[in-house]
Computed example of a mutant assay.
Amino acid sequence: MEGDIQFKIGRRTNDPRSITPEERSKWQKQLAVNARDYLFSIGQPLVYKRDGHIIAEHKDGRLQVIR
């Protein structure tokens, strides 16, 4: 059907416990980008803790201090 949502699931070809520190850093950065993109695509902010405050980052670039 036209307009159906399709999901693509990726699988790592190697075990995360056996990758180099450089590969691990790159992998973790990509996970963060993927999470941000997904949250923004469903209209949700990215929420994280920075300097003891809870921050909501919105797709339009606004940063909102929640606590």
Results as ranks from 00 to 15, higher is better:
53 H>S: 13
47 V>C: 11
36 R>H: 04
25 S>F: 04
18 S>Q: 11
37 D>E: 14
23 E>S: 08
15 D>M: 03
36 R>W: 01
6 Q>L: 14
51 D>I: 04
46 L>S: 02
53 H>V: 03
22 E>M: 09
29 K>V: 01
12 R>S: 14
44 Q>M: 13
28 Q>A: 12
12 R>F: 14
10 G>Y: 14
47 V>N: 01
60 D>Q: 05
20 T>W: 03
13 T>L: 13
15 D>W: 03
15 D>I: 00
8 K>I: 15
11 R>F: 15
5 I>M: 11
15 D>E: 07
59 K>G: 01
55 I>N: 00
51 D>E: 15
4 D>Y: 10
63 L>A: 05
20 T>N: 04
1 M>Y: 08
33 V>F: 07
34 N>Q: 12
51 D>Q: 13
5 I>F: 08
18 S>D: 13
6 Q>D: 05
41 S>C: 10
24 R>E: 11
7 F>N: 04
63 L>D: 02
41 S>N: 11
61 G>I: 05
14 N>A: 12
31 L>T: 11
5 I>C: 08
27 W>Y: 14
59 K>F: 06
1 M>S: 15
43 G>L: 09
42 I>V: 15
49 K>C: 11
13 T>N: 14
20 T>I: 02
56 A>V: 01
57 E>I: 02
63 L>C: 09
17 R>A: 15
34 N>M: 11
1 M>P: 02
48 Y>L: 13
25 S>K: 08
9 I>S: 10
43 G>P: 01
45 P>I: 04
49 K>A: 13
13 T>F: 05
35 A>N: 09
39 L>M: 12
24 R>C: 06
44 Q>Y: 03
20 T>D: 09
27 W>V: 03
38 Y>M: 08
25 S>N: 10
39 L>A: 07
64 Q>N: 09
59 K>I: 02
67 R>H: 09
59 K>C: 07
60 D>E: 08
39 L>S: 03
13 T>P: 00
39 L>K: 02
38 Y>A: 08
2 E>T: 15
18 S>G: 08
26 K>T: 05
2 E>N: 14
49 K>Y: 06
49 K>T: 10
